[in-house]
Nucleic acid binder design. Structure first.
Length: 209
DNA sequence: AGTTGAGGTGAGGGAGGTTT
DNA sequence: AAACCTCCCTCACCTCAACT
């Protein structure tokens, strides 16, 4: 098995079709199937839920757009001002997030047509991921101190989030953990996450700040 | 609130050489 | 023979400016 295969690389599924420069110019009028062929390497065909999530939100602007949306930003110009993102990129990212069901595009003004972008349930479900990234960034990449905190609206107290098990409410920190195939896992997935991985996934530890 | 076009950048992948 | 390394090309993604 090559290193690429070991990493889950499937050239038959993931390698984008090669096309000429002249074909690229017709992108704006291209049918959906053609656009799909134009996209970068896709994680869509991967079975792993992490890869499938990255397919939707892995592009960095997408995460920052969701961060702002969670913080109450809804209008195009507000996203543009907050992120300092080029308008064409913002258009593209908003469209992708709408297509993937994380944002809903709503008309709020008829003439001229103006839209706002509001979180769907799927988009709001991304909130814990944002919190986890914030906490991770504060712990590892903020030598100057925390520039952003999670605060309890009622008490005003800065919170220190931890990941807990939904069933028991117990924090995962300190537990021995591993990734294991779920009920819908394919044979390949079962093979990939066989017992040999058991000792390779240490539980997340709290790092002293 | 977008769209279009020009041009820059860097990751990814193929090809071929080198090492083990 | 397999693994590894390096070079080079392609192309997806990006910014910027101009425009509707």
């Amino acid at each position: 098995m090559t290193s690429k295969e070991a990493a889950g690389f499937n050239p038959g599924v993931l390698r984008p079709h090669k096309i000429g420069a002249s074909e690229q110019l017709a992108l704006s009028d291209a049918p959906a199937a053609f656009v799909t062929a134009m996209r970068r390497k896709s994680f869509e065909a991967m079975e792993c839920p992490i890869a499938r999530s990255l397919e939707r939100v892995g592009e960095w602007w997408s995460m920052l757009i969701l961060r702002d949306a969670i913080n109450g930003v809804t209008r195009f110009d507000a996203f543009e001002a907050s992120l300092k993102i080029a308008p064409n990129m913002l258009t593209r990212r908003l469209r992708t997030l709408v297509e993937d069901g994380l944002l809903e595009r709503r008309l709020y003004k008829e003439r001229p047509k103006r839209y706002e972008y509001v979180l769907t349930d799927r988009g709001r479900d991304f909130f814990p991921v944002i919190l986890a990234l914030l906490d991770y960034g504060n712990r590892h990449f903020a030598p100057e101190g925390e520039a952003l905190q999670i605060v309890d609206l009622d008490t005003g107290r800065a919170l220190d989030p931890v990941l807990v098990d939904r069933a028991t409410g117990e924090p995962l920190a300190g537990k021995r953990l591993k990734l294991a195939p779920g009920p819908a896992a394919s044979a390949a997935m079962c093979e990939r996450y066989a017992e040999k991985h058991e000792a390779s996934a240490p539980a997340p530890r709290r790092v002293k700040r």
